Measured scan of single mutants.
Amino acid sequence: MSIQHFRVALIPFFAAFCLPVFAHPETLVKVKDAEDQLGARVGYIELDLNSGKILESFRPEERFPMMSTFKVLLCGAVLSRVDAGQEQLGRRIHYSQNDLVEYSPVTEKHLTDGMTVRELCSAAITMSDNTAANLLLTTIGGPKELTAFLHNMGDHVTRLDRWEPELNEAIPNDERDTTMPAAMATTLRKLLTGELLTLASRQQLIDWMEADKVAGPLLRSALPAGWFIADKSGAGERGSRGIIAALGPDGKPSRIVVIYTTGSQATMDERNRQIAEIGASLIKHW
């Protein structure tokens, strides 16, 4: 067993022997301040990774656009098919120029040779490549099948209805392509620590998230040296922004954090800054 596999296998073990965790309302004060600064709703939840206990939450059962955070769930569904012998990570998928959609920095470079399922998941999570996500959605049967996968996990809230990039439209009061912070946090925890996926697939999923290259201005910008984070960000229309993450000190994750916002007129930089400040408060009061 590799060191990384050992780390993920012992996530519940280490967490069980940690000192009790206590909620700190100071972080919620910052979440509410972010709402004021952005002029928009902000949803927040913080779960203990081992027990699933909610440590703090704000608007945990209000719907927010998922945006690209759905790509972690998508690759979880792909990995479940791999575990069941219905898919192979090494299978190569070929596609054409007509398949390319807006923001496809990886797939646009491989029109000639195609990409493997493993490479597509890596591109979808680490670079948020939209064509990679659409190609992977095709392998599982489309958005409705991802929703069905989530329902089978016990998540009857999260739903995907459309493809990239239309799913980022974020129309107010439109339930399409949305989740709730509580539902997303619980589902992410199941994917990373539950028995739904094999140990190898859980490790692969967290490795992809740990290698995320496009979430630097968010929670990662607030992390002290030595902290662990595996995350996936999302951005959408109407001032929408979000991030889902597993993080913790001492090089291992111990909490799940989900943050979503929508309806702001603020710039992307300002949305990023507010999420980073929430992260800084979380870490300060850990």
Rank of each mutant, 00 (worst) to 15 (best):
D36A: 15
S2L: 15
V31Q: 01
H24R: 13
T126W: 04
R92C: 07
V117A: 04
R81K: 13
K144Y: 13
N173F: 13
P165K: 08
W227S: 02
A132V: 00
E46A: 10
V42W: 09
Y103I: 04
D113K: 12
T131D: 01
Q88G: 10
N173T: 14
R59C: 04
L74A: 06
G39R: 14
S128W: 00
G90R: 10
S221M: 11
N98S: 13
S122M: 15
E237A: 15
H24L: 10
W227Y: 07
D48P: 02
I243P: 00
G194A: 12
T187A: 09
W227C: 02
C75I: 07
A9K: 12
R59G: 04
R7I: 10
P165N: 08
G216I: 07
G142H: 04
S104Q: 02
A215N: 05
G76W: 05
D83A: 05
L74V: 11
G194R: 09
R59F: 03
R91I: 04
S240I: 01
I93S: 03
L196C: 14
R202L: 05
L73C: 08
R41S: 09
K32C: 10
K53W: 09
E270G: 08
I229A: 05
G239N: 05
E169C: 13
A23W: 03
I45M: 12
S57C: 09
V29D: 13
V78Q: 03
I54Y: 09
K30H: 08
F58T: 09
G216H: 08
D231M: 04
C18I: 01
A200H: 15
Q203V: 15
A183T: 12
N134W: 02
E102R: 10
I3N: 13
T193D: 09
D269I: 13
R159Y: 06
T27D: 04
L160T: 10
A211P: 04
G154W: 04
G39P: 05
A211F: 09
S281A: 15
P12K: 08
M1T: 01
L197E: 04
T193K: 15
T158G: 05
T187V: 08
E102N: 10
E270N: 09
T262I: 09
E145S: 12
V78F: 04
T262S: 11
D83V: 03
K190L: 10
A15C: 15
Y103G: 06
M127T: 12
Q4E: 15
S96Y: 11
L197K: 06
G154E: 09
L135Y: 03
L120A: 06
R7L: 08
A280G: 12
E119I: 01
R162E: 05
S80K: 14
K32F: 08
L188C: 09
Q97K: 14
S104C: 07
R255K: 12
G242N: 03
G141L: 04
A15Y: 15
R202I: 07
V257H: 01
E56V: 08
P249N: 08
Y95G: 03
M1A: 02
R91K: 10
P60S: 13
L191A: 06
T187P: 00
G279D: 03
V157E: 12
L73G: 06
